[in-house]
Design a protein around this nucleic acid. Structure first.
Lengths: 205, 205
DNA sequence: ATTGATTTTAAACAGGTGTTTAAAATTTGT
DNA sequence: ACAAATTTTAAACACCTGTTTAAAATCAAT
């Protein structure tokens, strides 16, 4: 138990929890302060405004989310292994933080709230060499040729949607959290098999 | 041009636009009234409260969304044709209403805001005979055996995510709306081919 | 121990929130 | 044309919003 968090850190952590759960519009500065066990004025003392605190939280959440899985592509493995591990890690991360992609997507959708500059995060993604490796694999006939954005959507859809769409899927199938968690484990297997079967070009004959 | 909308209908339509775009927390009763060209008090005169108006809007949006595509399963076609048409219709609907699934998912995620009873919509889905047909196709070895919820997640993911995740995909790939729309068309083809290839059991030898 | 800087607090600010009220305007039925 | 019912309006209600202020408390350094 590391209780050695400074006031500033406590507020930032509380803000992350509250923002991710309720969204920028769905909570107040006072709620964040209370969650951190602090006074309202302290929020603005350390972070100037609700908007600025949000921007800071959003950027760290975004980076955590993107980087938690993409590190795999720095390793020395076959592309198929990397994809398998990527999916595994993505499901792992999202099982612990199921509401993060929904948070990111929802907040990005209301573009007027804040200006998000993707350059910094994009550089870090580039640095993993994913795009380079995928492009090369396409030219070598290892994986199917398609725009890398289409490829990204394909993989993201099958990894993120089971978590993003959970509230809808739960309601439509009348499931509780435990039942849904079981299905998620199966979903991961289906998705892995389907994506690899579709993306990788079979060599036999 | 049907300008024959009653005050009540004008408010409902305005509320739908505003709620879907900004979410329940992201807009005010006054904003909805202004969008409808009405006074604030009229909103509560016709709908009692913001919450109740929202509940009404949400339910109609939900039903439109679910029913726009599932009607296919009432037709007399092969299951593969139905799936192809389903995907086609889903992409068609979402191209016209790209923010509806994100709206539904976001609002369902904050369960405390209102109590949504899925029974009515579930009955309508059952009435199309989808579940029955899919179950039978599984027993006959036409399609892969898996829990129907997993199957629903698989299809929903590949149809809805390109639209739900659009803000994220656009940012990460630095695309404008036109570029993204082009990719969506391709995505539909990839998804159709992949899903059919994975779900339907090949008969040759 | 006293000073000075930093941190925390309670209180206030102007403006926005959902909702209600009561009067005005309009429509309806006779 | 009149009266009753319906619809629309402007104003007000109490409360919550993000932010600021100025005083109090705490800390650090001499």
């Amino acid at each position: 138990m590391s209780k050695e968090l400074s006031t500033e850190e406590k507020i930032r952590e509380a803000a992350k929890r509250v923002f991710v759960e309720k969204g920028f519009d769905g909570c107040s500065s006072r709620e964040i302060a209370k969650e951190a066990g602090m006074n309202v004025a302290l929020v603005n003392y350390y972070f100037c405004s609700k908007k600025q605190l949000f921007k800071l939280v959003f950027e760290t959440v975004m980076e955590d989310f993107m980087m938690s899985t993409l590190e795999v592509f720095k390793k020395d493995l076959s592309l198929e292994s990397k994809l398998r591990i990527f999916i595994e890690r993505e499901y792992e991360f999202l099982t612990s933080h199921p509401d993060i992609p929904r948070f990111i997507i929802s907040e990005l959708a209301r573009g007027d709230k804040f200006e998000f500059d993707p350059r910094s995060i994009l550089e870090k993604i580039e640095a993993t060499g994913v795009f380079e490796e995928l492009g090369k694999a396409q030219e070598e006939g290892i994986i199917r040729k398609m725009d890398l954005t289409n490829l990204m959507i394909l993989i993201s859809a099958n990894c993120q949607y089971p978590f993003v769409g959970k509230p809808l899927m739960k309601h439509l199938n009348r499931l509780d959290d435990d039942q849904y968690s079981e299905l998620i484990t199966l979903q991961k297997q289906y998705v892995t098999e389907m994506l690899i079967g579709y993306l990788f070009i079979q060599k036999n004959k």
